[in-house]
């Protein structure tokens, strides 16, 4: 049992952070808590520190909105945090949609859908197109274009303020990931993930691979939602530096040989 916990230690911590954050937001709305009020688009921490989704603020800028100081500060805080500390950790540690897409990916592996569908009909760079298109369309139609269609916002707003037909968005993402495209939403389409991939490139917290311990069992690549970032597995000892890595830690915990672990970014390349 303890082994099971150890083998899922990051997964459990991630679920705890995701659910706790949603609970704090929910409590702010339902019971008047003031620890974290608002939602993932913009919030107020302890009633004083503003936080804001930088991607939403970029779209608002493109749409021609006047950006209030509060929201600008909030967006800068979030950007700096993920840029220098967390990398793309928003996707795996905060976003509630991650729970849906992880379940779909788990079912896909467990039921063997990956074996009958080997070809992926879309490229992972699609999200950067959606990201660019969000900004262009915001400028053209004068409203934050992605914010009005974002299933991610539908889900976190739904959890906090009432779901309405938002459950349909959840089901659509789940079915899409299960039957259409492996890691379809989070790994291919979501421009929020694209945005954090772009800014998270420089962050300090990085997974590190030790080639000499690797037995090339490929369990890490099996569970990784962004397989491309683990290109070095079994080939060379280095850090996972691609921005697409969400720091979810699944590869670290499934590895039986201690060949992967979290580390602090090394800025100077080791000479062998």
């Amino acid at each position: 049992m303890t082994k099971w916990f150890y083998k899922h230690r990051f997964l459990i911590s991630r679920r705890i952070t995701q659910i706790t954050l949603m609970l704090l937001y929910f409590g702010a709305n339902a019971w008047g808590w003031s620890i974290l009020a608002g939602n993932l688009s913009a919030s107020s921490l302890l009633g004083t520190i503003p936080l804001a989704d930088p991607f939403a603020v970029i779209q608002m800028l493109a749409a021609g909105a006047l950006i209030a100081t509060n929201i600008a500060i909030g967006a800068v805080i979030i950007t700096l945090f993920y840029m220098f500390v967390g990398g793309r950790a928003f996707c795996s540690w905060v976003c509630p949609v991650n729970i849906i897409t992880d379940s779909a990916a788990y079912l896909r592996r467990a039921l063997g859908f990956n074996r009958i569908q080997k070809k992926q009909p879309a490229s992972r760079s699609l999200r950067y197109w959606v990201f660019g298109l969000s900004i262009v369309l915001s400028a053209l139609i004068g409203v934050a274009a992605f914010e009005f269609v974002s299933p991610v916002a539908m889900v976190h707003r739904g959890i906090i303020f009432g779901l309405g037909f938002g459950w349909a968005a959840m089901v659509v993402i789940f079915l899409f990931d299960l039957f259409v495209l492996t890691n379809g939403w989070c790994g291919h389409i979501c421009p929020i993930g694209g945005f954090y991939s772009l800014i998270g490139r420089l962050s300090l917290i990085r997974v590190r691979h030790f080639e000499e311990r690797c037995t090339i069992c490929m369990k890490c690549k099996e569970v990784c939602p962004e397989k491309d970032v683990l290109f070095m597995v079994g080939k060379s000892s280095e850090q996972v530096l691609m921005g697409e890595c969400t720091n979810c830690g699944r590869c670290v915990e499934v590895c039986d040989d201690d060949a992967l672990n979290f580390s602090i970014r090394e800025f100077i390349k080791e000479t062998k």
């Binding site: 709305n29 913009a42 934050a144 916002a153 707003r157 739904g158 009432g162 779901l163 309405g164």
Partner: peptide, 28 residues
């Protein structure tokens, strides 16, 4: 028109309202 540009849809006005007058538009 400016409201749609500027509102970030955070729902803090909804939370502040003591009479539960305000709601955030849900799908549907």
């Amino acid at each position: 028109e400016d409201f749609l540009k500027t509102c970030i849809k955070c729902g803090m006005c909804v939370e502040a309202c003591p009479f539960d007058t305000l709601t955030l538009a849900k799908p549907g």
